[in-house]
Design a protein around this nucleic acid. Sequence first.
DNA 1: TTGTAAGCGTTATCAA
DNA 2: TTGATAACGCTTACAA
Lengths: 348, 348
Amino acid sequence: MIKKKINIYDVAKALDVSISTVSRALNNNPKISADTTRKVKQMAEKLGFQKNALASGLMTNKTKTIGVIVPQINREFFAQTVRSIEDTAFEMGYSVMICQSHDSYLKEQANINTLMSSRVDGIIVSLALETTDLKHFEKAIDADIPVVFFDRVGLELPNTTKIMVDNFSSAHKATSHLIQQGYKHIGYIGGPLMRQIFEERLGGYKQALIDHNMPIDDSIIEKTDLTQQDCYRAAKSILHASNPPDAILCANHLTSVNTIFYAMSINRIIPNDVAVVGFSENPIAELMIPSLTAVRQPCYEMGKLAMQKLVEEIDFDQEMNNFIHSTIVLDTKLDVRASSNGSFAANN
Amino acid sequence: MIKKKINIYDVAKALDVSISTVSRALNNNPKISADTTRKVKQMAEKLGFQKNALASGLMTNKTKTIGVIVPQINREFFAQTVRSIEDTAFEMGYSVMICQSHDSYLKEQANINTLMSSRVDGIIVSLALETTDLKHFEKAIDADIPVVFFDRVGLELPNTTKIMVDNFSSAHKATSHLIQQGYKHIGYIGGPLMRQIFEERLGGYKQALIDHNMPIDDSIIEKTDLTQQDCYRAAKSILHASNPPDAILCANHLTSVNTIFYAMSINRIIPNDVAVVGFSENPIAELMIPSLTAVRQPCYEMGKLAMQKLVEEIDFDQEMNNFIHSTIVLDTKLDVRASSNGSFAANN
DNA sequence: TTGTAAGCGTTATCAA
DNA sequence: TTGATAACGCTTACAA
């Protein structure tokens, strides 16, 4: 038995008014009397009317929905930025369609197609690892769907807002911290260089060594594809190097966790035998023993800014194509904990 | 400068055919000659045509999109089930709108409204902690949008498919394991009882004690609201009980992590002084030191089944209202590791 | 095998 | 302040 959905005709009929009146009242059009508006809303509620967003979007060319594409949402960094985007969107009257690219170029393309088909008003994205060309985003921009990048940004693409942290100086700061703690032979485990952010983090690490007149030793520099298996492999490999490091900077959370626990499993004392600094927003960083010194990124601010900038662009009067795009770089904070600081009290 | 989006009229004009031909060709209607179909698709591609899903959905009353509502996707259990739903949906030609309720009743209601407005073809949901009444789901079902529950199911709601694990016997199995390991005074940290699954886990724990003629000691039974702060509080509280437990069953991942690391911070040796068993799919369970014994749920199967059952119901010929709903209960597995087993080799 | 035209549920444009 | 009616871009009888 198929139940008929209530539409504005049903509401109009019940009140003996026209559908235009109903439509206007539901959209709070000021030309409709307060009295009529109240009556219409009451009746709509009573009949269980639910506006058909498809029909509405078809007419207005606005869906009040934005799309978000992230590599994997089960990483604290993305979970927290997406949370912030959601909250900001809600405040601004937008719904959010979350998509995961799972770091695949093809999936990312498919996501864009879905979002464009759904006629979202804008897209916020952090690039998949595999992604090198940005044609799919150009397609969206050509269709007048604004795109805002965050974290893993597409620097080559003009006409987009980009929001990121200062990865170079974050890695520089973290490395300098290790040097100040007295470590002499500092290794690095990073991500794939095809993503700008990992290139920058590697650069910051190397520059800090150079700034302190320390040699760069490629035999204690590892790269991972960010999967659990590969992070484990890299941790093992670096700790079994012929001349192993006395400190390691890890460019993501999973790597630092693998490094610490693998080191412990081969009886290295942390931070005495080897120190570890990571990039992490995960609550376990503070909880685990030893607790993890980590660069913390401003997730909340990134998400909020991304959404605000996107809506600015959506609302922009598009008669002339001169919206001013910006690239915003935010600072990070280094949370010093036990994994890089012997004097740190494990119990807080 | 507003760029006009390409529609089927543009494609039709470019080929000097009618819009119906274009529409049919794009939908692989067999009545259109292979030759025409090819030409249309080529031209559509060339012009950058992207089907307007709003218009299409408006006509067909099908959006080929389903909605998923989970409490928080940055928990491995939900991340993995959603991943499985996504993959299965993709295979079946569906898109997925992911929503997070953040365990709030109001947010869950808002999610339902958004999904209904977007005219999704069906909804898969795991309930928010706060949710007690299920009126919003009834509304969806009344509008002929099938609902499939998983994990945190709405048992009171008829006419829905429900997929869950056997929480009672999982907790029973985990507790029995601790008893067999020789622990005599086993505590429990669970979640809010308003959610059936935590009620069942508590029940399984208690029954195992009863089955082994062990007393139930309420002073070492804690409940949490699943937030980090509260999990920490509960861990601390149970370990400082006047007669503290020599083993603890934790009903979720965060609790077990907090318990283990808090115990270590007050110099308890695990598993000698106190053993811990959790519920967890998180890769860190295997990685951390000590590694965590945990009940592992069949995330992949749950997600896949949920999607399959949902599509079955969507595709069901709805002339008579007699779709047969089922409640499916899946088994879990206990991964025994170091946190409950002294003889377990820490290095694997 | 293809074309014509009606209709999906809104919003927008006129007129009243 | 309201009503009639034409769009929006697609799918689908019904005709040809």
